[in-house]
Write a protein that binds this DNA or RNA. Structure first.
Lengths: 223, 223, 223, 223
DNA sequence: GATGAATGAGATTTCATTCAT
DNA sequence: AATGAATGAAATCTCATTCAT
């Protein structure tokens, strides 16, 4: 997620330092994506040039086109990477996919918590993700498709978790899963975006407590 | 909001077409801002050139620089305009500033409702606003300052409304106004952003009912 | 030469403040030329815009074109003005036209002295003059003609003074007036140019003593 | 000095046209500088566009910015090149650095002679040099620094030669080397500038004889 | 596989000039 | 007489892409 972007990286665990062509390809691609993430977070999508990405990664000005073919492909790959950064964090924390052992309401609250911690700890990833999310809003955006799919995937996951909650009794029966999913997704993303724009004015601890309260009272079954 | 951008000259008084220099100035600025709003909503901030803005507005390629001095200034003016478009809608609907005659909780719910209707009815304004909001996320963005201030203003307004609700008894006493303000702002904005990215997948009617439920149970006093 | 450039100037000596149109025309032209001189000395000919000149003079962006018709005409007038600034200084000092009462050699030495003092005291005029002189060097320069004529006039004046010196016995009989004129003109101009480029490295007092020595021994009759 | 600017590709080795990247780099830079010299001599610094330079050199409109980064850097490189053109001529003629076998006064006179011949024979270089020298006069000129250093270097060289002359007895003992250096530098440069502005009115043969006389009598020891 | 030289389209900005007020 | 709104040409610079090395 935040490997050293300036040196072409060392071999993995094996014995000899010999690496296959495929390894080198992957290593280069990885370094270029890391550099792109940082530059996009700092300057935005259009203010980031492929030459800068290559050089920031420790390679040449032409390396991005050599590896990815075009800037557009690089950005699509980066979008997917940042999305996977969130999902990996969810998996590592065990909040998604839903665990039968935990009440779904608790998982939802923990999910929001994990998300905001991700924004803090992988700030570069988060800033790159939200920058690209914003860039997907214009009607003619080439990134739109990418985020339509991912947003839908996120809402579906949340909806399923809410449905599970209705079954396990942690969520009130009259709750509409798809409506609640849009709002919870919006809540989390909207708070994160405000934080990224003004870190000094938006306290995530406070926000997290408020989100917990909104979710617990909003859809939770009064114990 | 969406004046005809292609024929900027319209004489105001009855008989003569005589207009003062100041009138011409204002008319030009207005037409340029309208064109910029549309292009930013369609293509994004960086894919919109000042030459395109000028020509779309029915003026010359150099007109933006003549009137605003630079693209940066044009965008700042546009950001302010779209922000004011929201605020004007709040004022017209009577939800802000808060009315003593209405319970604050009801105003909050109505505010969310008004906001989502604004997204639908002034979609160009909304798309331009959210595009620029996204463009403000990179750390080095020149639009950042503008949105830091406006976001803060929005949160403060919501916080005040929540505080009023605690006084008028419509909001539970233990609610933290600033925490709830961040979350409600995030909820509204996050839902709107999802809608703008995928209008066919996000139904605002459903979303509005869910928001109402979250707000009523999240901070409202059980009647 | 260095009147206040920022305010459109007061009426001359008369009783009433009423001024004729012609007075105003002249006053405006004068103020515009003063502003142009300063800007040319600071930035060079091409980096000076007519709008800046107008505004620096306390008038509008359009005033230069209104008064002079075009930038080219303004620059020709300015060239002539700076040339006349030198000649006026010569006349005031009595070194040109030649005085029968003074030995021509003495006048020549005094002329060099006066020139270098002019460079120091009317530095803006001098810097503008030399900037335009340099701009006249490219083969296709539009200023060339102007300076061809003035340089020739200067050399002829010096040549006549040298010839007078041969008659009054202060200059050696074998001296070629036109050759000596080119060299003396070059000497004075070349020293002035060096001074204007690096005021801190070229001391005019030292230079003046050296010039005096070169002229006295170079063409003067050993007393 | 004046390599063919329109066909930049010339293979150096015998059989193959193979050239290294570095060769291509240098060849391009050289061709661009040659084109810039010619255009600056013809039109002046500001009337020469980087696009014209690239195309005149047989490359693309963007080639100057690709190779030099900016117009400013191109001009600084060109200034240095034209300065070195003079110095190379001095070295080739053996007048600088000073030769112990030749009386310094003779070297000084020869130096002036060589300089004026350079103006005639490398007229493009000379015109470009003097054009840029003139462009360095406005206080805010970006070329100033370059010429401050070079002019100083030139004066110091002349001053040293004069000091040597005092030691070898060819220059009068009471002469102030630094004062004489400024005046001789001015003399040479001033004559050259007059010549470049009006070639038909300034005869270099005449001028050279006059300079020789001024130097010989001005600082030389009467033999 | 990797580099970087070169291109040329396109963006922002400056500015002399024209013309309505 | 004077202003300044508007134009449109031209300049510099950036940059994604292509291709020789």
């Amino acid at each position: 997620m935040s490997s050293s972007p300036s040196e072409p990286r060392a071999g993995s665990p094996g014995l000899t330092v010999r690496r296959t062509q495929k390894d080198r390809r992957n290593a280069t691609a990885h370094a270029l994506l890391a550099a792109a993430r940082q530059l996009v977070a700092d300057r935005g999508v259009d203010q980031t040039s492929v030459a800068d990405v290559g050089e920031r990664a420790g390679y040449s000005r032409g390396s991005v086109n050599h590896r990815f073919g075009s800037k557009k492909v690089l950005l699509q790959r980066l979008a997917r990477e940042t999305q996977q950064s969130v999902e990996a964090t969810f998996r590592e924390s065990g909040v998604l996919p839903s665990q039968p052992s935990t009440p779904a309401l608790k998982s939802l609250i923990e999910l929001a918590n994990v998300y905001l911690r991700w924004v803090e700890q992988a700030e570069g990833d988060a800033r790159a993700f939200f920058t690209m999310w914003g860039a997907a809003i214009p009607t003619e955006s080439t990134l739109r498709e990418e985020f339509v799919a991912f947003d839908d995937h996120f809402r579906v996951s949340l909806g399923e978790l809410i449905s599970v909650g209705k079954e396990d009794g942690s969520v009130r029966p009259e709750v509409d899963p798809s409506g609640a999913a849009v709002v919870i997704a919006g809540m989390i993303r909207g708070v994160a975006a405000q934080r990224l724009i003004a870190p000094e004015l938006v306290d995530l601890e406070t926000a997290h407590r408020a989100i917990e309260s909104f979710v617990r009272h909003g859809i939770g079954l009064a114990a």
